[in-house]
Design a protein around this nucleic acid. Structure first.
Lengths: 112, 112
DNA sequence: AATTCTGTCAACCATTTGGTTGAATGATTT
DNA sequence: AAATCATTCAACCAAATGGTTGACAGAATT
């Protein structure tokens, strides 16, 4: 397994985990402090089971860590992998300005 | 439809578009300059059709713009939406350092 | 010891995803 | 006008997603 594949796997997981508003909301909530699974689920109009699955996805992406304390599962934000994602995005910072017009430039050049 | 929903829709689309290594590779390629669909597809071990669909996903997320020039479709990177994603991630910058230990802190406090 | 509470596991379901192949469309070349 | 080239459209498929409900397991309460 090439080393690059593992990095890609992680990016796949992280971006996928973030590509859902429920999961993003869970992360926001966890930014305010640790919480039990039940606490996390309460505000959402869906079953505890559904939220439990979302938490699993976040955990697999490394964005949430869990500690079992008796019958309660305490979840905590682990924002580290977000840095990886932002690092990837950062490569494109240089293109955020007016490179939107590459296409226009291409077409103009071509039609001359 | 509340205004916040639209922002979430866009984040859903952008993060989902990025959650696939083929699409990320397409973006990397487009960072070096515009390209036709066929050119984009060539390096990948999959059908042109498959790549065409990936481009559609990128286009829907606003990450790629297309201009039809005769029978050729010229694709260009549009990195703008990445800024939106990075902005979202940026909220968590404060948590990248040592907040990994929130959980440990919680447990420690609790067990005292 | 019985009950209740927290959370997972398992099965199921509809929809989406990521890929395929084959046919159609439109522009270019011969 | 015929053939070829660049792409999309349409149908299909297996696997993954996001949700449900019901049963189970382990801890805490009574």
């Amino acid at each position: 397994m090439p080393a690059a594949a593992r990095a890609d796997d992680r990016l796949d997981q992280v971006f996928h985990a973030l590509a859902n508003r429920t999961r993003r909301a869970l992360l926001r909530r966890l930014a305010t402090g640790t919480a039990k699974v039940g606490d996390l689920a309460a505000p959402f109009g869906m079953s505890l089971n559904a939220v439990s699955k979302h938490i699993l996805v976040l955990e697999d992406a490394g964005l949430v860590r869990r500690t079992v304390l008796g019958r309660e599962h305490i979840c905590a934000l682990n924002a580290g992998p977000m840095a990886t994602a932002e690092q990837w995005l950062d490569f494109y910072s240089g293109y955020w300005n007016n490179k939107l017009d590459r296409l226009a430039a291409f077409v103009e050049k071509d039609s001359k």
